[in-house]
């Protein structure tokens, strides 16, 4: 019995000592340990993701032939329609290029696209993050926007070698500017993530809505990216304004919640838009930002 007690006490002491040692260790060691853990668990995340894909594959495989034939017929029709649309877009693109050349228009920063499967959806109400199966080895950098189709999903928070953590637009760490649908003056509003209350999931908030902004009753206006900040291309959908807009008590503006256009935790695949050249904001996210800034000077 005494031996048991002594053993328990000793383990508490060791635990406390470990905690103290961890606290006093330099920040670089902390960082290394976190990175090492992320890289260590990356194969497990990959494996889990692939297992889910396999399950989905077998689920699809089990469908009967009639169903598949009908689906492929529908797809063929959709394909034909899209082919036509593609040709029309090609004409528009050429016209666009011609006009840009005429106007000597300086195009916005180009983006490379990296398509990534979602490995883990962290449903924690605190973090509002997902992990994707592409990392710095694939060219993903911290600070890059993440989209699905024409909708903004979030922004890369950390890029590990083979995986990346993405702050969703409902994350408190997310912030970007937006334009409101129908606002002819194109005034900037601020879109931020807001932590959920209790067990509720996170949500986004739109602030600095001008008092004289009105929209037709019954329509939830879209909030789209401005394209002015050098990160998000213009016109991507951030979400829709919820009906209840509150006037701030100082009377200057209104604020509202934002409904994301997708269920963010049901996503299976996303696209990371990687700017061709790192933006200043990306460099500031680097560990040695000040050193890098000094080097660039």
């Amino acid at each position: 019995m005494d031996k048991h007690r002594q053993g328990a006490t000793a383990s508490y002491v060791v635990l406390a000592l470990c905690a103290v040692v961890w606290v006093v260790l330099p920040a670089a060691v902390h960082r290394f340990a976190q990175e090492a853990f992320a890289e260590f668990q990356a194969p497990a995340l990959h494996l889990a993701g692939k297992a889910r894909d396999l399950a989905r594959f077998w689920e699809l495989k089990s469908r009967d032939k009639e169903e598949i034939l009908a689906a492929s017929r529908d797809l063929a029709r959709a394909n034909a329609a899209l082919e036509l649309q593609l040709r029309r877009y090609e004409d528009i693109r050429k016209e666009n290029v011609r006009l840009r050349e005429m106007l000597r228009y300086n195009p916005p920063p180009e983006h490379l696209t990296v398509v990534a499967r979602v490995a883990v959806r962290d449903s924690s109400t605190w973090w509002q993050r997902i992990v994707i199966r592409k990392g710095s080895d694939d060219g993903v950098r911290a600070g890059c926007p993440v989209i699905f189709s024409d909708r903004v999903i979030g922004k890369v928070a950390v890029a590990h070698h083979t995986t990346s953590e993405v702050d969703l637009i409902t994350s408190p760490n997310f912030r970007c500017t937006g334009f409101l649908e129908g606002d002819e003056q194109n005034r900037i509003v601020l879109v931020t993530g807001a932590p959920g209350r209790g067990l509720a999931s996170g949500r986004s908030r739109v602030t600095a809505i001008p008092q004289d902004y009105f929209y037709p009753v019954g329509n939830a206006p879209k909030v789209t990216t401005t394209g002015l900040g050098g990160v998000y291309p213009a016109g991507l959908i951030l979400g829709h304004l919820e009906g209840g807009q509150r006037t701030t008590q100082d009377g200057n503006f209104r604020e509202s919640s934002l409904t994301p256009t997708r269920d963010l935790f049901a996503l299976q695949e996303v696209t990371v838009l990687v700017p061709k050249y790192p933006t200043p904001g990306e460099i500031l996210l680097e560990d040695q930002a000040q050193k890098r800034l000094d080097e660039l000077r």
């Binding site: 912030r175 500017t177 998000y232």
Partner: peptide
């Protein structure tokens, strides 16, 4: 507006 947007979109939160 571009200056405001650059800060909001790029500067760490």
């Amino acid at each position: 507006q571009r200056t405001i947007a650059r800060f909001i979109d790029q500067f760490p939160v």
